[in-house]
Computed example of a mutant assay.
Amino acid sequence: MASLCLATYPDANSPKIAENAVALVKQIDAALHAVAINVDIPDVSNALSSYLLDLPHKIREVEATSRKCGSVLLEAIAKAAAHGGVTLTTQLLTAPPALMGDVAAEQSRYFDVCLAGWAPGNQTARMIAEAILFGSGRPALLLPDSTDVGVLDHVVIAWDGSRVAARAVADARAFLEHASMITVVTVTDEKPLPGQDIDERLAQGLRTRGLVAEAASIQAGDRSIGTALQEHALKIGGKLLVMGGYGHSRVRDFVLGGATEGILADLRLPVLLSH
């Protein structure tokens, strides 16, 4: 079962998320639960604010815009699901702007994988994705808002032998089992690694399980680790990048690892992040 939490305000997801989410869950034979989180702004009106700024009216306008975006997105998903033969359930929730990520994380805990749309500069989508990654206990799969997902037949695993990387591999099982090729990639010049040929060791373990897997070692050079991994994945025809999500949250501020920050800052293909 997959969930999809939709950003509605101030930066809404693109309707493209409907096609991409349905195409993805169909590939792993999953059902989809789509949640539109509409903004609910607390009433801060008083006589002065009503007279000078007409805040109650502005709040109503903002909330109406959010509800409209949520309805449009859910309608698009319902249409795509019906066309693709995907089982769909939908839900409407409301939350204050600062708590939209918390609500998304709480809802996501009931599903196996959590989808989130992604577009450059969409801070609402980023807030929701980070909250799901660090607060749901489930893997977060980021989908580019502007391109077609396509068939995720080549999965690239970013492997450094760490706990979070191992967790990511386990969380990606459904995608690995449906892939025709898996490439295990280790970046050798970014940090000390826990042994030699760790990429080949994981690839061999996957082959023992009946999967088609190979190993590859790369160097990041002067590129960020997130850029290096995505560029190599695209170079070899990778359709999905699987990696551990490094970082932790302090209240509602997220302290991210370098690779995670690089992915969130410049997403170039679908990425499954697991914390």
Results as ranks from 00 to 15, higher is better:
residue 148 D to Q: 14
residue 47 A to P: 02
residue 238 G to F: 01
residue 8 T to Y: 03
residue 27 Q to I: 00
residue 172 A to Y: 06
residue 275 H to P: 12
residue 67 R to E: 14
residue 264 L to G: 00
residue 13 N to F: 07
residue 78 A to H: 11
residue 182 I to H: 02
residue 66 S to L: 02
residue 20 N to V: 05
residue 113 V to M: 09
residue 232 H to E: 14
residue 37 I to C: 05
residue 112 D to A: 14
residue 143 L to E: 03
residue 35 V to Q: 01
residue 129 A to C: 08
residue 110 Y to G: 10
residue 218 I to K: 05
residue 210 G to T: 02
residue 179 A to S: 12
residue 54 D to T: 02
residue 201 R to T: 15
residue 17 I to R: 06
residue 70 G to D: 00
residue 192 P to D: 10
residue 178 H to Y: 12
residue 75 E to K: 14
residue 136 S to R: 01
residue 39 V to I: 07
residue 205 G to F: 09
residue 156 V to K: 01
residue 55 L to W: 15
residue 236 I to W: 11
residue 272 L to M: 11
residue 253 D to A: 15
residue 136 S to P: 09
residue 18 A to V: 05
residue 232 H to T: 05
residue 147 T to E: 15
residue 33 H to L: 02
residue 132 I to C: 11
residue 156 V to A: 03
residue 182 I to M: 07
residue 33 H to Q: 09
residue 50 S to D: 15
residue 134 F to W: 05
residue 103 V to P: 09
residue 46 N to A: 12
residue 64 A to W: 10
residue 65 T to E: 14
residue 107 Q to G: 04
residue 112 D to Y: 00
residue 246 Y to C: 12
residue 138 R to F: 07
residue 144 P to N: 04
residue 236 I to Y: 01
residue 94 T to W: 12
residue 257 G to E: 10
residue 266 D to C: 08
residue 171 D to N: 14
residue 139 P to T: 09
residue 126 R to A: 03
residue 198 I to M: 02
residue 53 L to C: 10
residue 90 T to A: 03
residue 56 P to C: 03
residue 124 T to V: 12
residue 178 H to N: 15
residue 43 D to T: 06
residue 224 S to E: 11
residue 168 A to M: 05
residue 71 S to Q: 14
residue 30 A to D: 15
residue 140 A to M: 03
residue 63 E to A: 04
residue 155 V to N: 08
residue 64 A to R: 15
residue 269 L to D: 08
residue 230 Q to F: 10
residue 80 A to P: 05
residue 85 G to A: 04
residue 56 P to Y: 10
residue 105 A to E: 01
residue 97 P to K: 06
residue 238 G to T: 00
residue 125 A to E: 07
residue 138 R to K: 12
residue 180 S to F: 05
residue 101 G to A: 08
residue 132 I to K: 01
residue 259 A to K: 05
residue 153 D to E: 14
residue 142 L to C: 02
residue 7 A to I: 00
residue 229 L to E: 05
residue 252 R to C: 08
residue 256 L to K: 01
residue 172 A to E: 05
residue 104 A to D: 11
residue 14 S to T: 07
residue 269 L to C: 11
residue 244 G to L: 00
residue 16 K to G: 12
residue 141 L to K: 00
residue 248 H to I: 06
residue 102 D to F: 13
residue 101 G to N: 03
residue 76 A to K: 08
residue 43 D to F: 03
residue 118 W to F: 02
residue 62 V to Y: 10
residue 150 G to A: 06
residue 162 S to F: 01
residue 51 Y to V: 15
residue 41 I to P: 08
residue 41 I to T: 10
residue 201 R to C: 11
residue 22 V to Y: 08
residue 206 L to Q: 00
residue 266 D to G: 09
residue 15 P to F: 02
residue 218 I to L: 04
residue 255 V to Y: 14
residue 269 L to G: 01
residue 206 L to R: 00
residue 45 S to C: 09
residue 218 I to R: 04
residue 121 G to E: 08
residue 8 T to F: 05
residue 61 E to M: 13
residue 160 D to C: 01
residue 234 L to Q: 13
residue 199 D to L: 05
residue 45 S to V: 08
residue 53 L to S: 13
residue 218 I to Q: 03
residue 202 L to R: 00
residue 66 S to G: 07
residue 198 I to K: 06
residue 106 E to A: 12
residue 183 T to W: 04
residue 84 G to I: 06
residue 102 D to P: 07
residue 69 C to N: 13
residue 263 I to A: 10
residue 32 L to H: 04
residue 77 I to F: 10
residue 101 G to W: 04
residue 51 Y to W: 14
